[in-house]
Write a protein that binds this DNA or RNA. Structure first.
Lengths: 150, 150
DNA sequence: TATTGTTATACTCTATAACTATA
DNA sequence: TATAGTTATAGAGTATAACAATA
């Protein structure tokens, strides 16, 4: 702690580096854990975004996830092909597609979430429960709630 | 906390989602903060990796950063073109390039690190100092020290 | 034979622009 | 005119394979 601005020239204290690698590793672990369910970590994210407040239009789901609507198209194509989601034109606004989880999708989400939660716990195993909860809480407040309910 | 396995079907508690978006945002903030110095957040990472224990071969630097050696080539091409690093064949093993920061590179790193640290502090501003330090410490232990000093 | 740096190539992820159908 | 979904396309960023020089 010098007063002259010694700025710890240490890669391993760099937040970008830490967050990038932490993300990479949990994504890797989760992808492995989800393998039996036929979806990857990204697809779980889409299912979670949809499960929040159905029914949703594609665009609403995309905003919730923080991805582009054009990206959402491809994700939903894949999930629909697997029978996990269904798309129907919105009766009130036929430009929109209402996206819903199928029964299979809901069941897959349930099981995949259990596996994903286990992967997270494995990932966080070296932390105390308090530190793990603090980490999650801090990240939540940093990311800020994209709680656009419309 | 139900005992039946209610697995919080909430995207915003999902670690991958949180880490991905946290990474995205700090990378964005840092890139802005580094703009005056002519480097981006990734290039700062490379400079930091090099500054650790010079002199280093390209491959050692790449391993330290956790990127492929072929990726390192392009990064160093850019940094060399900007006059921030220099490459010389290793006298003891002429297959290797020893990569070092130039004086300009060292000075750029110094200033960029100050700006980057400020960006991190801005990013973490909503956390208590304790929570911020806990976050960094937890992330460090999760990422694990790639302290291959050779 | 193995390794370092390099190049060519391909793959993934994502966004921008343009098209269509609806509003 | 504007919006939702779609498609085509292009741009990052990265890794794999193959090559030259060196060990």
């Amino acid at each position: 702690m010098s007063s002259t601005g010694e700025q710890h020239l240490d890669l391993r204290r760099n937040l970008i580096y830490l967050l990038k690698h932490a993300h990479f590793r949990i994504a890797e672990l989760t992808t492995e854990a989800l393998e039996p369910f036929g979806i990857d970590a990204r697809e779980l994210g889409v299912l979670l975004a949809l499960a929040g407040r159905e029914p949703k239009s594609q665009q609403q789901a995309a905003q919730h996830l923080g991805i582009d609507r054009t990206t959402m198209v491809a994700k939903l194509d894949g999930l629909e092909a697997k029978g996990l989601v269904s798309r129907h034109p919105d009766a009130n606004d036929r430009r929109r597609n209402v996206v819903e989880l199928t029964d299979t999708g809901r069941e897959t989400l349930r099981k995949a979430t259990i596996a994903s939660t286990q992967a997270e716990q494995d990932f966080l195993a070296s932390l105390t429960p308090q530190a793990a909860e603090s980490l999650r809480r801090s990240l939540r407040s940093l990311v800020a709630p994209p709680d656009t309910g419309d």
